[in-house]
Design a protein around this nucleic acid. Sequence first.
DNA 1: AATCATGTAACATTTCTTGTTGCGTTATTC
DNA 2: GAATAACGCAACAAGAAATGTTACATGATT
Lengths: 136, 136
Amino acid sequence: MKRNSRLSLALHTLGHMATDPDQSQTSSDIAAHAGTNPVVVRRVLGRLREAGLLTSEKGHSGGWKLAREPQSITLADVYLALDEQIIAPDKDDGDHHCSMEHALHKQVSRVLRDVERNLVEQLATTTIADVQIAED
Amino acid sequence: MKRNSRLSLALHTLGHMATDPDQSQTSSDIAAHAGTNPVVVRRVLGRLREAGLLTSEKGHSGGWKLAREPQSITLADVYLALDEQIIAPDKDDGDHHCSMEHALHKQVSRVLRDVERNLVEQLATTTIADVQIAED
DNA sequence: AATCATGTAACATTTCTTGTTGCGTTATTC
DNA sequence: GAATAACGCAACAAGAAATGTTACATGATT
């Protein structure tokens, strides 16, 4: 796999589950579908569980299931659960030579934060259920 | 420096230039301000030049300048010039076990492309001139 | 008790970004 | 026209981050 695969893996898995919400899937099954490793799957889905999007059961006939209705899980939920922070970092190290540099830095940071916030707002308008089935 | 620094470096540099569009700056100056290496600066700014946002002059008293008015350079121009593609990759390797997998993949790709497109549209609403001076 | 699944830690591998050095080219300055 | 100062570019080094892998503990079901 390659870059930015967490979001992709999460969306594929959730989309798959949305088509059959009562069936639980093991991390091995999911990994096989996604062409990756069960441990990697558990790492990513673990975050979604912490965010209350999935549940997991141990033991025989255990596995992963949606914790809520597909329609109530937005892409923003997923994005935030994965703590992606794609745009915004740009932290200030405070080591500025001129005061204008500092002011500029604040301005750039503000703009990037705005962009990030807008991105999340847009992500919130689409749910897992919308990803579910393609009729393209 | 850290991750995702290209966009940050580009915005800082362009914002700086926007305050004094006629003054040209060397990659060494810029690198010193940004706390990085002149070659790194040239790599990043080279892309902006290819996109027609900057010009560069060799030789004595050469350096970098804006190629256009600050008001005409949007964040989308910068983002696209850097070829960031933050959201969208998710290329299809065609190795799907079931046909539903393929359909799902297309759907996920479509959604991510939409998100990316919206991001660019939003970036287009802000210009370098808007980043120029902070009065916060 | 045996089996099957998650949870987690530790480590290896791979990939990506950034940093660095070196040298060629071009333009200016003296 | 020689020295200087800038970019252009390639090659390589270093570092960080993501992903892959192995191993084992824990818990639940059969």
